[in-house]
Each structure stands twice: as structure tokens, then as C-alpha cells.
Amino acid sequence: MSALLEASGVSVDYHRRGAPALRAVDGADLSLARGEILGLVGESGCGKSTLGRAVVGLLPAAGRIRFDGHPIVPLGRRRRAPGMRGLQMVFQDPYASLNPRRWVGDQVGDGYLLGGASRREALRRAGELLERVGLPADAARRYPHEFSGGQRQRIAIARTLAAEPSCIVADEPISALDASAQASVANLLVDLVRELDMGMVFISHDLSVVRQIADRTAVMYLGRVVEAGPTQELWSSPAHPYTRALISAVPRADGAGVLPVELPGDVPDPARPPSGCRFHPRCPLARPECSRDDPPLVVLRDGRSAACVLQNAGEPARPLADSTTHIGKDAT
């Protein structure tokens, strides 16, 4: 399986006036195949959005990022290389990403105009795309404010499709939407990926949606990918204690009245990450060496990888020891 989008050792620094640079992503690895949905999850501030922006070239990054065999060049004043058109991004807030003063059809058709189509032709094809994402064809001659949040996100998706992408990076594409719109926009994205044989990085803080739609999941903590693997296996037997903590914090709407498990402590300041394994101060399974040794992300068996001393390269993921005595205690 050759990778459509591949990132290794990616680091992104934010330069701040009067303060040392902040390393938001620090040596993260990702790979995505055609027709695959990769869920990228983690707490806020873990660097998942920054990594998403870096892999499409919206942010300058150190490390190696390749799309379809070409290196990614960060967006600058020059025209984007033609090979990069196939890599597109969907943003969180469809209220901010659409121009309120232009017809929806014109905004969707921009991609065709760049490809050399006439305005009339672009508008006609934009109408087709709008129908494809579940909107009426006359939507092309209307303005964004005439649509609900879910419809606007469909418009934003139609606009990326005009570039005929082979890969989409979607950053929290359903987080700003109502419950029922969330489900329908998520379904639309899945359908498009399957139908057009694209790849998609689906960045979300909503773990239950990622579990439902992602083929593989990557979990980030403090600028690093700490675990990645097929979604079902990662959920049923997490290999990294942080993955398990995230999963057990998700409340279920099953009516059972079970309080979710709390992960004590806050995400540390990324400007001053802890020594050794970055998760060790919050880790219920931490050993003495964890405060000293920084474990790399190693490849395990069955397409899984993890960055934890408890896991050994080339071996199947070892089940994590029960830690209820630590995290199960009422730490409120």
C-alpha cells in the first residue's frame, strides 16, 4: 500500500514576540493511503490542527512531507505547484470560510475558473457539485447567509471538490454543526472518499465520530503522534495509556448513569514539555525510567504503532495493565 500522503518527523514552530518559539508539533509522523480515512484525535493544544495545516502546506514545517510522491512546499507568494491542487482542506467554521458577498456558485466554481473554464461553464459545473453534496441546483445563485450551518459546510465541501482532489484534510469539519447536521455531513464526507477513491485526514476532538468513520486513527499528545493503528483495534485494545484515558473519558448516551473516567492534570505547556515521555506526569502506568527516556513511535505488528516503553517494536500490541486503582479513584 503506497502512501498518498506521508509525513515523517514533522515539526512546526510558532515564533512569538518576546518569548522563545513554541514547538506546537514536534516530530510527528503520519501516513495516509488512497481511499482511506485517517482520524486524527487529541486534546486541544496537542497540535492536531497545526499538523493538518502543515501537511497541506499552509504552515512552514521542518521534516519530510510528501503528497503523491511530491514534496510539499509551504504556501508562499508564488502560485501553488500544479501537483498540489489534488490536496485540499475543509475548515471548521463554514461561517468564516465562505465569502458572504459572493454567490455560492461563483465560490464553488473558482476551482474550475483556475482550470481554464469560462464563468458560465464554471457556474454550471458548480451547480452539479452542489447537487452532488445534497443541495438544490439553484443554490448556485444564492448567498451563504441563505443557508444553515450544515448546508454551508456542504458548500465548503463542494468548493474543495471543484479542484478534483485526491486527498482532503478536514479540520473539525462537523464540530460547529447541530447533532443531526453532524451526522449527515460526516456521512457525505465518507461517501465522497469511497466514491472518488480519495484519502481523508479527519481531524476531530469528537472521538466517537472518529471511531465510527475512520479506518485508521492517530492519537496526538503534546505535539507528537503517540499511537496509530486500525480504528477498531486501537479502540478495543489501546496500546498507549493516553489513548485509553481518552477513550474512557467519552460519556455514552446509554442511560446507565456511568460517570466518565477523569484523566487527572492538564496538558502541560508545550513551551516547556516534561522530560522523558511527555505523558509520564499524567500516566497511571508510568515507571521510573519514563521521566528520563523519551520513547519513539515504534511499529508493532498488525499495522499498529505506539510510543510507549510498554510496547516492543515488531511485536503485537501488549494489553495495558489494569490501572483502576489509580485513575478509577474519585479524583474530582
Binding site: 447533532a179 443531526s180 453532524q182 466517537s208 465510527q212
Partner: peptide, 20 residues
Amino acid sequence: DALPHPEGGAAALRPIPGSP
């Protein structure tokens, strides 16, 4: 029904048609 199924799985999400 619109919520992701707690056990995961490949089934599509089932949205409520229309909007509030």
C-alpha cells in the same frame, strides 16, 4: 440514532432529515 454507535462499526450515521 444520529449518535455514533457506542460499539463503533462501519455502519453510516443516521441523521434526522431536515433541520430544526
